[in-house]
Simulated assay, not measured.
Amino acid sequence: MSAPVSEERREGARPAAPQRGAVLKAGGFVALGSSALQVSSVIAAGLFAALGPFETSGLRLLIAAALLLIVFRPRLRGRSRADWFGIVGYGVAMAAMNACLYAAIDRIPLGIAVTLDFLGPCVVALAAARHVREALCALGAFAGVLLISLGPGGYFDPLGYAFALGGAVFFGLYTVMASRVGKADGGLGDLALSVGVAAVLTLPVSLPHLASVTAPQWGLLAVSAVLGVAFTFTMDTLAGRVADARVVGTWFALDPVLGSLAGLLFMGQALTWSAGAGIVLVAASGALLVWVAGRRTPSLSPDGAVH
Rank of each mutant, 00 (worst) to 15 (best):
A135I: 15
R9G: 01
V197F: 05
F29D: 01
G189I: 03
M235L: 12
L59F: 07
P216G: 08
D236E: 15
K183D: 12
Y161D: 09
D185C: 00
F142G: 08
A127M: 15
G276K: 00
G259C: 09
H209I: 01
A99G: 11
A211C: 07
A22P: 00
G33N: 03
V39K: 04
T175W: 00
E7G: 11
L62T: 13
D190V: 03
V71M: 12
K183L: 13
A225S: 13
V213L: 05
V257Y: 05
Y102H: 15
A215N: 02
G278Q: 05
V181L: 09
Y90P: 04
G182N: 01
A22V: 02
A65L: 12
V213K: 03
E7C: 07
A50C: 08
G187A: 09
P298F: 04
V30P: 02
L159Y: 09
L47T: 02
G78P: 03
V5K: 12
L51F: 06
V223F: 08
V248L: 03
S212G: 12
A103P: 12
G228V: 05
E7Y: 00
V280N: 02
G12C: 01
F156K: 07
A270F: 14
P204M: 10
P74C: 11
K25H: 01
A162F: 04
K25C: 09
E55C: 13
P298M: 05
A96L: 15
G28Q: 07
L203E: 09
G144I: 05
C137K: 13
A245Y: 00
L188R: 09
D106R: 11
S194T: 06
T115I: 00
G278S: 06
A162Y: 06
S260P: 07
P53Y: 04
V242T: 13
L191W: 02
T232C: 14
E55Q: 10
L136N: 05
R60Y: 03
G228M: 09
Y155V: 14
L69G: 10
D83Q: 09
F163D: 08
G172D: 04
P158A: 10
T250K: 00
G21P: 02
A305D: 01
A199G: 11
P18D: 00
G228P: 02
R107D: 14
A22L: 01
A22E: 15
S41G: 15
A22T: 00
D83A: 11
L24P: 06
R60K: 13
G86D: 11
A113K: 01
L300T: 11
V181K: 00
L265P: 12
A222H: 08
Y174I: 02
S285V: 06
F233A: 13
S40K: 05
G140D: 07
R241C: 03
A283T: 10
P152I: 07
L37R: 01
M267W: 08
F142C: 09
S299W: 13
A26F: 08
A44H: 01
G240I: 12
P256A: 13
A64G: 02
G182Y: 02
L76H: 08
G167N: 06
S206N: 02
P4V: 14
R130A: 13
T237H: 15
L61Y: 06
G240H: 06
P204G: 11
A3Q: 13
S80L: 00
P302I: 10
V292G: 00
D106P: 09
L207H: 00
G144S: 06
S206L: 07
P4F: 15
V213P: 03
G91N: 07
F85Q: 15
R77S: 15
P302A: 14
